[in-house]
Simulated scan of single mutants.
Amino acid sequence: MSRCHDRGGLAESLRGVDVVVDVTDAPSRGRTASLEFFGTATGSLLEAAASAGAAHHVVLSATYGESVHVAPVLMRPVSTDDVAAAPAHVAVGGPLFGVLEVAGPEEYHLDELTAKLLAARGGPA
Results as ranks from 00 to 15, higher is better:
residue 3 R to S: 12
residue 59 V to D: 01
residue 11 A to E: 06
residue 46 L to D: 02
residue 104 G to K: 04
residue 35 L to I: 14
residue 4 C to E: 13
residue 28 S to R: 14
residue 115 A to W: 02
residue 69 H to Y: 12
residue 85 A to M: 09
residue 71 A to W: 03
residue 15 R to H: 07
residue 62 A to G: 14
residue 54 A to R: 02
residue 77 P to Y: 06
residue 34 S to M: 12
residue 17 V to C: 15
residue 50 A to Y: 09
residue 7 R to K: 12
residue 53 G to N: 04
residue 35 L to Y: 15
residue 84 A to L: 04
residue 6 D to W: 01
residue 95 P to T: 11
residue 117 L to G: 00
residue 86 A to T: 08
residue 14 L to Q: 03
residue 23 V to G: 10
residue 20 V to E: 02
residue 41 A to V: 10
residue 51 S to I: 10
residue 55 A to G: 08
residue 112 E to G: 01
residue 2 S to T: 12
residue 2 S to V: 10
residue 7 R to Y: 05
residue 43 G to P: 06
residue 24 T to F: 11
residue 110 L to P: 04
residue 125 A to W: 01
residue 77 P to G: 06
residue 110 L to K: 08
residue 69 H to K: 11
residue 72 P to V: 01
residue 77 P to R: 04
residue 114 T to R: 00
residue 80 T to A: 15
residue 29 R to L: 13
residue 36 E to H: 11
residue 21 V to Y: 05
residue 101 E to L: 14
residue 20 V to G: 05
residue 49 A to V: 03
residue 34 S to W: 11
residue 9 G to C: 09
residue 80 T to L: 15
residue 71 A to V: 13
residue 62 A to M: 12
residue 77 P to V: 05
residue 47 E to W: 10
residue 32 T to N: 13
residue 45 L to H: 03
residue 99 V to I: 09
